[in-house]
């Protein structure tokens, strides 16, 4: 029951925030990819920085539930590129596609259907293509601090401080 409760609650908050924050808004995403509208870019950047800082604090206090994905660098790059092509065509990604379909966008619903087909393609090519491709340049489930033999603090604090400074300095000022 706890699984269902927390899943639904966190998902609900996430879906609502994606919508209200303009990320579940294909026009905002395309605007950012075209470097014409920085709303989504700034939102995503702050999302990542706050998430990084909070996860680091949880880790330091022993409360983090991490899930590091394997760094099969070649496959991950190819996957990121394919996702990027779909993202650039539609303005959706899996989470915002679901959110946009729920907000009444029929084109997003079609994209979600395409995603189920995409998952099936992945399943079908997994035994042959994916398994062998993942053997190349695979560093396993590793983090940047681990592979560089440094502490997470040495990464998190500079990234968060510099990132926050850049966001603050470049923030759009309201004209009065």
């Amino acid at each position: 029951m706890a699984t269902v409760f927390w899943g639904l609650l966190i998902g609900f908050l996430f879906g609502a925030a994606l919508y209200l924050g303009g990320l579940a808004e294909p026009d905002k995403i395309i605007g950012t990819l075209r470097l014409k509208d920085f709303h989504a870019f700034r939102t995503i950047a702050l999302f990542v920085l706050v998430g990084m800082l909070g996860t680091w604090i949880l880790q330091k206090t022993g409360h983090a539930n991490l899930d590091i994905k394997p760094a099969a660098v070649l496959t991950v790059f190819i996957g990121g590129a394919l996702l990027g092509v779909g993202f650039g065509i539609t303005g959706y990604c899996p989470g915002t596609g679901l959110a946009c379909a729920a907000a009444g966008r029929m084109d997003a619903l079609i994209t979600v259907l395409g995603m189920f087909v995409g998952a099936m393609v992945y399943i079908l090519i997994y035994p042959t293509v994916v398994v062998s491709l993942e053997q190349h340049f695979n560093y396993g489930k590793i983090t940047l601090p681990e592979i560089t033999n440094t502490s997470s603090t040495a990464w998190v604090l500079p990234i968060v401080l510099i990132g926050a400074l850049i966001l603050w300095v470049t923030a759009p000022r309201r004209k009065s």
Binding site: I68, I78, G79, V85, G86, Y92, V130, I142, L144
Partner: peptide, 30 residues
């Protein structure tokens, strides 16, 4: 686009949420 999105996301072991945002939150090399 939807086909590209999910095929890509699974190859990358995560999408814009799980691979990108959560990946950076955990400083994953991925």
């Amino acid at each position: 686009g939807g086909i590209f999105i999910l095929l890509g996301a699974r190859l990358a072991h995560g999408c814009t949420s799980g691979g990108f945002a959560s990946g950076w939150a955990q400083l994953s090399l991925n």
